[in-house]
Design a protein around this nucleic acid. Structure first.
Lengths: 341, 341
DNA sequence: CTGAAAGCGCTAACAG
DNA sequence: CTGTTAGCGCTTTCAG
């Protein structure tokens, strides 16, 4: 293994000077620097992270803890976003998955401590409140896709309320006035937030919100919820005054609405406009016509989490701090059309 | 920060003895051990990873390099599988995403070296050949979901050929004899492998393989391929001698076959059985009826990759080593039915 | 601008 | 079974 001293010897300088070059310390003569850089390249010297970390007392590694990943596959984009942001200053990600297990989680905190990670991002796969308790951890902590009840930690979450507003406003702008809703499981935070968004959009145009047209697409406890969007869709679409558009709580619901419409001989977007949520591309781009939907900005959430960490005040904050809301962008495809006056 | 010496002082022993306890060295008196353990717990001592690593010359961290993750969201299960296996001996995962960029990849190897990771898993998001070149890396390397041309590195890949066989054999066993195929992009390795599997299954039952019934579901270069499964499906299903079952190259194709069938007034599984591939649950469980499919064993691939690493011979192997094939399990849902005589 | 010495927290090697 | 000594590769003083 090539060490700092090897480089120093070859370059005919002291170890400290090489150290200065490696750390971009400006107080080094340009020629000396170039010579040393040449030796470093020639020997393919890579600074030992362990030794560095030992002296520095902190490492260039950031910890990422996730709960359960499998159910909402695209949420891993949080990880990609975090990496993207980290890469710029050559930091790296140590990741651990707790699968929701509290014992495991305690171990992970300990492990992060052992590695002296400079900060930790805790990412959940659903947008939800999270009580972290009091992790024995000195560095900064940022929550991604979740938030602590009393705002003890900085948090980055999707702006579900505005996302709901976006869904409704787009349809309203296209001239739709009878709009059905097949929503997420009502126990989800996203569900109530988006509901508020719908109402705002409806109110702005003076369209009354008709509870008759608002159905849950999922029922049951969240871990074992059942999708009933197909039935809800058929129900809505069988009414004499059937809606001309349906807002869906996610793209899976939209998928079943497509099936419900097909079963009734209705075609999209001619007879019915459909608006999804999540922008799960495997669904949205495969559906025919391709689904217009609102994206969940996971990548951006990951990126912002790291930035917040870097900017960050260490430890828990005393004051209440509202979560940072990241907008959910409209992704237009072919499932919504304007209706004539 | 609590150090080994703090514990030693409190327990009234030498640092080395504490070190022994921490490392499960049996050569310590039981009472001494218990006393030390108590102090460790009381002080919440966590061994410093950096210092350990420095002495040991290697760390308990394993590197995971991935190419592009976004397109096939479930492939992240490789990561979960790896973590699951690592957790048992309290090792951890340092992950880096190269986005297919060669410069970035070189940096990542360097970074892994700096961290003295004990081994590296290189995971790709499609099953494909991979030429690693000659990474400057001393530890063991295992390929997951990819394989090196001349078998230079141990590799763990899905058994696509057997998966294809499984798809066909299941339908054949249900009595189907006219079976359509809407396959993956023909340039994909998985595509040719599965084709071989179909043929074997057909041959076993004495059913001739009809090329007329075999259509690609995707066309164009792989980075910008277009899905044409809907058209292929309508085509197949409009024939006077239409197939009673269709084997799909993946669940997205199956999704479009459902739509094609619906557009022709055909219902699944009464008029048509459909068999998917991938077991993307967001699709397979949302389709009505739920899709019978063959799963891609990503989790298992990740797990096996770590195990191979742990068992592993370091560095590149001289001899040719065929990839380990992980079976793709049949996941039965409601889209296939037995046909009468 | 450059160098020498000291030491981070831990463990291998070698006593006792 | 337990302790002492030395040193891993680097960076932080503090002097030149």
């Amino acid at each position: 293994m090539v060490t700092l001293r090897d480089v120093a010897r070859q370059a005919g300088v002291s170890a400290k000077t090489v150290s200065r070059v490696v750390n971009d310390d400006p107080a080094v003569n340009a020629e000396t620097r170039d010579a040393i850089l040449a030796v470093i390249r020639r020997l393919d010297y890579v600074p030992d992270h362990a030794a560095r970390m030992m002296r520095a007392g902190t490492s260039s590694v950031v910890g990422l803890m996730t709960d359960v990943v499998a159910t909402t596959p695209y949420s891993v984009d949080i990880v990609r976003g975090a990496q993207d942001s980290l890469r710029r200053d050559r930091r790296t990600l140590l990741i651990a998955n707790t699968e929701g297990d509290a014992d495991l989680e305690r171990d992970v905190w300990r492990m992060f401590r052992a590695h002296k990670v400079s900060g930790v991002v805790y990412a959940t796969m659903y947008h939800r409140p999270l009580d972290l308790g009091d992790p024995e951890f000195g560095g900064a902590i940022v929550l991604a896709n979740c938030f602590s009840p009393r705002g003890r930690f900085p948090a980055i979450v999707p702006d579900d309320e505005h996302g709901g507003y976006t869904q409704a406003a787009h349809l309203l702008a296209l001239g739709h006035r009878r709009i059905g809703i097949v929503s997420l499981n009502p126990v989800l935070r996203a569900s109530v937030l988006r509901g508020a968004g719908f109402r705002t959009a409806f109110a702005e145009v003076g369209v009354p919100f008709d509870p008759e047209l608002d159905r849950p697409g999922f029922v049951g406890p969240i871990e074992s919820e059942r999708i009933v969007a197909y039935e809800a869709g058929r129900d809505l679409l069988s009414r004499p005054d059937r809606p001309t558009a349906i807002i869906c709580g996610n793209d899976k619901i939209a998928m079943q609405i497509y099936a419900a419409a097909a079963s009734l001989g209705l075609s999209i977007p001619q007879d019915l406009s459909v608006m999804g949520y999540d922008d799960m591309t495997v669904i949205a781009e495969t559906l025919r016509p391709a689904l217009t939907t609102v994206g969940l900005p996971y990548f951006e959430i990951g990126r912002r989490a790291i930035e917040t960490l870097s900017a960050g005040t260490p430890g828990a904050k005393a004051g209440i701090e509202p979560p940072v809301l990241v907008p959910c962008p409209l992704v237009e495809r072919q499932s919504c059309r304007a209706i004539d006056g």
